[in-house]
Design a protein around this nucleic acid. Sequence first.
DNA 1: AGTGCCCGGGG
DNA 2: GTGTACGGGCACT
Length: 783
Amino acid sequence: MTEIIKFWLIDINYQESERGDEIRLWGIDDKNRRVLLLEENFKPFFYVKAKSPEALDILFNRLSTSAGPLKPVIEVKKVRRKLFGKNIAVLEVKCRSEKDMERTVEKLIESGLVDETFEDDLRVTDLYIIDTDLTPSSWHTVTVEEVNRPEFKVEKVYKVKSLLKRIELENIPELKYIVFSMICLSQYGSPNPERDPIISLSIVNDKGETVTFKYNGSDKELIENFIKYVNEYDPDIILSYGSNRIWWDYLLKRAQRHGLKLKIDRIGGEPHRSVYGHFSITGRANIDLFDFIEDLYEIKVKTLENVASYMGIEAPPETFAGDDRIYAIWTENPEKVHEICRNRAKVIMEIARNILDFAIQLSALVYMPLDVVGAAAVGFRVEYHLMKNAHKRGELIPKREERPYQPYKGGLVLEPKPGIHENIAVLDFASMYPHIMMKYNISPDTLTTEDEDVYVAPEVGYKFKKHPPGLYKETLERLLKARKEIKEKLSKLSPDDPMYRILDARQRAVKVIANANYGYAGWLGARWYVKEVAEATTAWGRSFISKTVEMAEKLGLTIIYGDTDSIFVKYDPEKVKELLKIVEEELGMEMKPDKIYERVLFTEAKKRYAGLLKDGRIDIVGLEVARGDWSQLAKKVQYEVIKILLREKSPTKALDCTVKYIQALRRKEVPLEDLVIWKTVTKDLEEYKARAPHVTAAKMLIEKGYRLTLGDKVGYVIVKGTGKLYERAVPYIFAKYDDIDIDYYIERQIVPAAARILKIFGIREQDILNAASGTSLMMFMKL
DNA sequence: AGTGCCCGGGG
DNA sequence: GTGTACGGGCACT
C-alpha cells in the first residue's frame, strides 16, 4: 500500500548489497517518527566527453549494445551539456551501481577515445542530492510503501516509490539530541588511548537531563553504559567538542581494548571516519561543535573555556582544569572529576544551543548533510552549493586538478596619514566582491575572447559575456535575494519568537556563503578555478576604490586612509552625503557609512590603526593588541597607551603608564600567563626550514607526551640564557617564573608595542627605556 | 643591512 | 585544502 508522507532528512548513506544497491535516507516524518527511506531506483550516472564526434558515436554504439536493466550499464544517452559555458555533446551513462560505474569509466578510458569523464568522481549520495530535489535538513513529500525490515532501528521503514519533492517549511522537527563530554586520566601529557582510561563520561540530553558514567577500576562498564544510553535514548544528533579530532577515536580504541564494539548507530554499527575527516554515525548526525567554532576567528585559542567565556556561558573555574590538574584532583577526590565532567557537558550543551540552528540552516542552504557541513572547509561548502546550481543549469561539474601557484593582484590599500585625526567617517561598499561579480557577470562560464556584448575588466582586460547570466551571478543573486527576504521576515518577528532564531541563523549562513564565493573563485583547489575570474574581480574593486577617492577629493573631502572596499574621510556630513550619491549614480554601486570615529590614530603603517567611537568604545585593527602572537603583557601596555592617547591625548601619561608596567615586571608582579606567547604550528615540525621559538616549544611538548596536531597553538615563554631565542623558548606549562628572561619581555615585548604608538609623538624606544631606568621624565619632556 | 621564512589579522 | 596585501619578528648571511 502506498502512502504520501512528509520527511525531514537527517542522514544519508549508500549501501551496496547483493539484492541491489540502495540509498538510505534517515529522517523524521511529520508525526515525529524516526523513519528510514530505502531508495532503490536511483542509479549513479556520469558523463563522457569523447575526443571527436566520431569517437562519441563509436562509444555510444559500443555502450548501448551491451546496455540493459541488469547490465553494468543500464542506459546511454547522447545529450548536450555545458562545460565552462560552452555547449558540448556528451554521453550520459547510467550504471547499475557505484562499482559498475568505476569499472565502466576504467574501460572507457582504456578505449583511447575518451577526452574526459565528468561527475564519476562524486559519491552516489552526492549525485542523488545534486540530481534530485532532496535537500538535507529540510522537509519533503514523498510517496512510499512500508516494508518490514526489523534490522533497522527506526519506527518505520519505507521503500521510496516516487522522487522526493522538497517543500518550503521552515520549522525544524523535534530533534532528539545529546551532548557528551569525557575525561581521561593521564599523569603526564595528553591522554593516550593505549594507556589512559576514560574516568568519567557525562551526557546531557535535549530535555536537560544529565547522567555521568564513572570509572570503577576499569572503563569497560563506562563504555557499555554509554552504548546502552545512546541506543535507549536514540538521539538524532550527537554533539560534542573535539569528537572528530579526538573523542570518537579514543572511544573506539578503548572499546576495542575491552573487546567491545561501539554499536551506537541505527544499524548496529560503529562510528566510522568519512569525508573531510568527520565521523559518521549511520542514521544519526554526529556534530563536532569545534568544527563550527574554528570559523570564529574572534576566539584565538579554541579551548572550551575560551568558547564558554566568548559566549557568556558560566561555569565554575575548575570546569576547565587541564589534564595535569585533573590527575591531581582525581587522586584527591574522584567525585570532583565527575562533577567537572558533568559541568563540561552542560557547557557544551549551551554551545550546542547557540550553534545547532546555524548548522541546520547551513546544511540546508549548501545541500550538505548535517554531519558533513561542519567538517567541510569553507571552500567545499561553497563548491557543494555551486555544484547543485550548476547541475540544474546543465553545466558539467569539472574535476579537481593540481595547479601551480599563480599569484594575482588583490585589493588596493591607501597610504595612511600618520597621526591622530578627529571626526573621521569610514565609508564602504557593502559586499563589494559579490556585487562586482553580479554587476559584470564575472563567472567561469562567461569568460570569453569575443568582443561583442561583453564587459571588459580594467587593468587586466579580461572579457565577460553580458548574457546569459553566469553560474556565479545566478548563484549570488539567489543568495542575496534570499537574504533580503529572510531579513524582511525577521523584521516582522519578535526576537523571542522561536522562528526568529532559525531565520537569523539562516541569513547568517547565506551571508557567509555569498561572501566566500570570491575567495573560492581564486582558490587553486576549486573545481571551477579560473584565475581571470578572481583577477578581474579585484581589478574592478581597485578601480572602484580609486574612482571613489578621486570623487571624494573633487568634493574637497580629506582622505585619511582606505583599504580594498573602504575609505576613511574627514567627516563633513553634507559632502559625505553628496559623495555617496555620486558614487551610486556614477559607479552604480552602493556605498554606506560604516562608522564614525571621534578620533582615530594612524602610524605610517598600513592596516594598523586604533579608533575611538562616539560611544566610548575603542576599535583596534592590526596592531599588537589585536594579535594573538604577542604576550598579554605587551597587549595590555599597548591598549593602555592607546586608550590614554585617544581619550586623554596625553603622551606623558601614556609614557608614564608604560614605565609602570616595566617596573611591575621587574618586581615580578606580572603573572606568568601574561608572558605567554601563542603561535600556531602550521606544518609538520620536520618541514620547517627556519628555526623558530614556537617550533622548539612544540617539539618539547611532543617529547613529553603531549598531543599536538597541525593547527594547534603552542604557548611558550622566553627564559634566561645566552643563545638564540629558539633555544630559550619553553612551553609555559613547564616554565618557572624565576627562569623568565625579564629583559626580553621589556625590550622585545613592552617597549616595541608601546613605542609603535608613542612614536607618533616623537617618543622612541630608547626614550621609554631611559624613562624606565630612572632618567627623569621631566628631563625628557624638556627636550 | 638585506633577504627569506613565518605568522596573524583584516578588508 | 577560500583569496591578496601587509607588518613585523627572527634567523641567517
